[in-house]
């Protein structure tokens, strides 16, 4: 639990962070809230040579609603999402999901951008952003580009971000239609054994911890769009997934759970 020696630079803006990443190369890692990276470093499973600390990049913090779009700075904490009055009105699914992450200490330190960039299939927030059809803005040496959430998660703990890019903003459509988040775990603070997020009455459905990436449940969405009821739509929730096995659940049990939770989430969301 003692990390290896590591270099440290502070980057108080996206541009400074991009410059630092350019200077230090592939072995540099961005540090936001540190809720995933620091534990990995303590176990020496992650050994970056340099930490680029964005913790004080205040421009990347905050929530704004402009017309049909909600924009959230990447460094906005889970706690800020959880307690934002604007977000509760414009995108209640995300505010609720944020309240389900870890424990209060994690939610005060952890950031939306950090959670998305870490791309953990067992994390709550990526699934919410997927179900909501979010768009992620990344800044690199050549400027900024937009990446659809559905294109962002490319593999286990891998995202579409290039090594010299910084996630700066998350755009979400205002979404006040029927929503639900079913998180199944054994202790309040734990990752989901399986989770299901539903937005807009089933137009967006995504799955937590059912494969190597956060997953969009396209088959469920299609079934709902085709007029299927919650039970029938949920029956295909495990289709195409490759759920992991761990102490809490094997793959078959996860497939059972995801069908159960999807049905419950669809019913709760009014599908």
């Amino acid at each position: 639990m003692i990390p290896a020696a590591v270099g440290y630079v502070r980057a108080d803006s996206a541009e400074a962070a991009v410059a630092a990443l350019g200077e230090h190369g592939d072995e540099a890692k961005l540090l936001a809230g540190g809720q995933s990276l620091i534990p990995l470093m303590r176990l020496r499973l992650a050994r970056p040579s340099v930490l680029v600390d964005m913790g004080r990049a205040e421009d990347l913090r905050g929530i704004s609603v402009d017309g049909d779009t909600v924009s959230i700075g990447a460094l906005t904490s889970h706690s800020a999402l959880e307690h934002s009055v604007e977000l509760a009105a414009a995108c209640p699914l995300l505010a609720h999901v944020a309240s389900q992450v870890g424990d209060p200490a994690v939610r005060h330190r952890g950031t939306l951008g950090g959670s998305l960039a870490h791309a953990d299939p067992a994390s709550d927030l990526p699934a919410a952003v997927l179900a909501l059809g979010g768009t992620l803005v990344a800044t690199g040496p050549g400027g900024s580009r937009e990446i659809a959430a559905s294109d962002f998660f490319t593999g286990f703990l891998e995202s579409a971000l290039a090594s010299d890019e910084v996630l700066t903003t998350v755009h979400l459509p205002v979404s006040t239609g029927g929503w639900a988040y079913q998180k199944f775990n054994r202790r309040a603070q734990d990752w989901a054994i399986v989770g299901v997020a539903v937005a807009e009455g089933g137009a967006g459905v995504s799955l937590v911890n059912m494969g190597s990436t956060p997953l969009r449940a396209a088959a469920v969405e299609a079934a709902v769009a085709g007029g299927a009821g919650a039970s029938d739509a949920a029956a295909v929730a495990a289709d195409g997934t490759e759920p992991p096995t761990d102490n809490n659940a094997d793959g078959a049990y996860r497939e059972h759970l995801v069908r159960v939770l999807t049905e419950r989430a669809l019913v709760a969301a009014g599908a």
């Binding site: 424990d103 054994r186 202790r187 309040a188 603070q189 734990d190 990752w191 761990d246 102490n247």
Partner: peptide
Amino acid sequence: SANLADYLVPSAAE
């Protein structure tokens, strides 16, 4: 189950 994520010591919430 060598860490407190995998070894499920209950918290106040439980």
